[in-house]
Structures are given as C-alpha cells and as structure tokens.
C-alpha cells in the first residue's frame, strides 16, 4: 500500500513537473528566465498584470468563453433533442438514419474545412462570432453520447408518462432530460474543453484582434513577443484556469457520465 502511494506520487510528480515549471517561470523576472534554478529570487506577481497590459488578454479570455459557452449550449441542446428522437421515439428508418449519422463521426474535420470556409465567405460570416460558433455547434458525437445514456433509462417510464396524458415534449423535458443529467454533464465538459481549445477553425476564420480567442491570442503572443518567456508562461497559466475549475467542479459527474454512457456503447 505504501509502495502504491509512492508510485502514485512519483507518477503524479512527473506529469505535473512541466506545469510547475510553467507556473514558476511565470513568476520570474525576465533576467532569470532560462537560468538553471527553477525558483525565482524575486516573486514577480506583477507579470500577470503585465500580460493584460501588453496584449488584450481580457478580450481573448472573454471571446474564448463566449464562443465555448455558445457552442456548448447549442450542442447540448440540439444533441439532446436528436438523441431523444433516436432513442425514445419510434419512426420508420430511424436506425438507418442513425447509422449514417454516426458514420460521419469518423470523417476527418480537415475534409470539411475548405468547403466550410467557402460557405462562410458566401454567408459573409468570415471573421465573426457566428462563423466560429455555427460549424462547431452540431456534432454527431454529442448525439451519440447522449443517446447511449438515454437508452439506459427504462422504457416503462415513457409508457407511464403517456398514460398520464403527457406529450412527447413533456416526456422529454420532465422525465428523460433530468434523468440523463450525467450524460449531459459529460458532454458539457467535453464540448467546453475542446471548443475552449479550438485552434484550427478560429485560426482560419479570425482576422480582427478584437475577436481572437485564447489559442489564437497565445499564438499571436508567441510569434510577436515570444522572447518574453515569463509573460508568455503567465498567459498560458491563466488560460488554463477555467479548465481546472470546470474539471474540479464536475469530475465526479463526469466520470459517472462516461461510465454509464460511452463505455457501454
């Protein structure tokens, strides 16, 4: 048991070392960056303030959150509706449509990028938030995940609800959706994280600095002022914080959601 503890602690340490280096470097004065000592001789907390002064970091932050929240909301909402249709409603051709739908999950996003860009030009959405949000908001993965979850809810509930005179809409809102909560939380985390970190599409789409999301902002920071390692590391550290919050708050539900949903698929 003691050995296990030590092993866990050693592994955890190796995995977090880069992270620790990042945080420590972000607190160093410029002159000490790149020195062998990991600890700063003076702790420069002002580096964090400086990041906001040299680049519009607050704007990047806001934009990333804004886009990620919208995408997450839309994806969770539309996916639950679709999953409800695929799992609890009975209609001709349902399973065939679902298979086809699922098949697109393995398509490389790359294939869609160039035509999607042409569509955005035609819709006049290049360099706009809707242009970022819309293509990311509809995914087969979300539907798949929640459908798996809804399938595990007993069918008898539906019959009871219908007997009570509920419509399918009421069944969805008042019975199925609340029971699928762990699935929804899992999807929320997945979607939020991947869209908060999205790089490829925003890189192609965005032009105005005022619309930059964090990854694009960080890249811009790296290419324009990459030598200020301490500020860069401070910016990276700050960009990670929302993810930690989301994970720490929701991890129990997250793991339960995965256990109940995806795995039994």
């Amino acid at each position: 048991m003691g050995v296990l503890h030590l092993a866990l602690a050693i592994v955890a340490m190796t995995l977090t070392l880069p992270f620790v280096w990042m945080v420590l470097t972000s607190l160093k004065p410029l002159a000490e960056v790149g020195l062998e000592s990991w600890l700063p001789t003076q702790w420069h907390w002002s580096n964090y303030k400086e990041v906001f002064e040299v680049i519009p970091f607050a704007t990047f932050y806001h934009n990333s959150l804004f886009v990620a929240c919208w995408v997450t909301f839309l994806q969770v909402f539309t996916s639950s509706l679709a999953a409800f249709s695929f799992s609890r409603l009975d209609w001709p051709g349902r399973d065939r449509v679902f298979l086809l739908y699922l098949g697109t999950m393995m398509l490389p996003g790359l294939v869609m990028m160039i035509p999607n860009y042409q569509i955005m030009i035609k819709l006049n959405l290049v360099d706009s938030f809707p242009g970022l949000i819309l293509p990311a908001a509809f995914s087969a993965f979300g539907t798949f995940l929640i459908r798996q979850f809804m399938l595990s809810i007993p069918k008898s509930l539906d019959e009871a609800a219908y007997l009570d005179g509920a419509s399918s809409w009421q069944l969805f809102w008042h019975v199925i959706l609340p029971l699928s909560r762990p699935g929804i939380v899992t999807l929320t985390i997945f979607t939020f994280m991947s869209n908060y970190n999205a790089f490829f599409w925003p890189l192609v789409m965005l032009k105005s600095e005022s619309k930059y999301t964090l990854p694009i902002g960080l890249l811009f920071f790296d290419s324009s002022r990459g030598q200020s390692t301490h500020l860069l590391m401070a910016a990276v550290t700050m960009s990670v914080i929302p993810m930690i919050i989301v994970f720490v708050l929701l991890q129990k539900q997250f793991i339960r959601g995965i256990a109940a949903g995806a795995v039994k698929g």
């Binding site: 995995l15 977090t16 880069p18 992270f19 990042m22 994280m193 970190n197 999205a198 790089f199 964090l214 990854p215 694009i216 960080l218 890249l219 990276v236 960009s239 990670v240 993810m243 930690i244 994970f247």
Partner: peptide, 9 residues
C-alpha cells in the same frame, strides 16, 4: 493536469 494545458498552450 496535462490535459488542462491541451492544445496551443
């Protein structure tokens, strides 16, 4: 933790 710094970070 490594996953928190995912992507560009």
């Amino acid at each position: 933790t490594p996953h928190f710094t995912a992507g560009v970070a």
